[in-house]
Each structure stands twice: as C-alpha cells, then as structure tokens.
C-alpha cells in the first residue's frame, strides 16, 4: 500500500498519523511540503530513520529541487523519484492513501 504525505512535519501531524497507521512493508512517498521530512539534521530525523526500518520511503525529486534541497542533504535510505516514479508506485500498490 502506498501512503503519500504532502505536509511539512513541522506544521501538521500527517507524518505522525501516517507512521502510526501504515503497516510495516508499506511505501511512503513524501511530496510537496512533505519532502522536508526527508532532510538530514532536522527534529524529525530520528523518527524518519526509525521509519526507514519499517517502510520504503521516497521523496518526489521535483519538489525537493523546487525547495532547494540537494540530494546529499537527504537521510540515507530515502529514494528520490520523479512523477513517472510516482505513477509506478501508485500502479504497483493495491491502494493509495493520501494523508491530506
């Protein structure tokens, strides 16, 4: 199952709720302001490192780029995908939950 998060973890609780309710083995895609959760050295880094043990975490490349986030600033293990990768993730999951 694919979960998407488009909220900054510093503003909304979408990341927390997703991590609470997503089953281990799920895919999580960070997009829009959600990509800030993928960055190293933030207050949510530890939470994300832990999440990477249970989930495959992706960040949407165009949204990272728009926000000036270089890929070497990302937490190890976070995979970067484009819109085509987003489509593949959605197509390959049985269902999609967008934590709007």
């Amino acid at each position: 199952m694919l979960h998407t998060i488009n909220k900054s973890p510093f503003e909304k609780n979408s990341l927390d709720t997703c991590l609470r309710l997503a089953k281990p083995g799920s895919e999580i895609l960070l997009l829009e302001d959600g990509v800030y959760a993928a960055v190293k050295g933030t207050a949510v880094e530890q939470k994300m490192v832990q999440a990477l043990g249970d989930y495959t975490v992706y960040a949407l490349g165009p949204d990272l780029k728009a926000r000036g986030i270089e890929e070497d600033r990302l937490i190890d293990g976070v995979e970067v995908v484009g819109y085509d990768g987003f489509v593949d993730l959605a197509a390959n999951s049985d269902r999609v939950q967008s934590w709007l």
Binding site: N6, L31, E32, D33, P62, D63, G82, Y83, D84, F86, V87, A90
Partner: peptide
C-alpha cells in the same frame, strides 16, 4: 500545489 501535482501526475500517467 495540489493542482500542479495532480496535473503533473496525470501527464506522467498518460505518457
């Protein structure tokens, strides 16, 4: 940004 994301996703899916 949701409208842009939706548009970009739709376009990528069609492609």
């Amino acid at each position: 940004q949701a409208a842009d994301t939706a548009f970009n996703f739709t376009k990528a899916a069609l492609e």
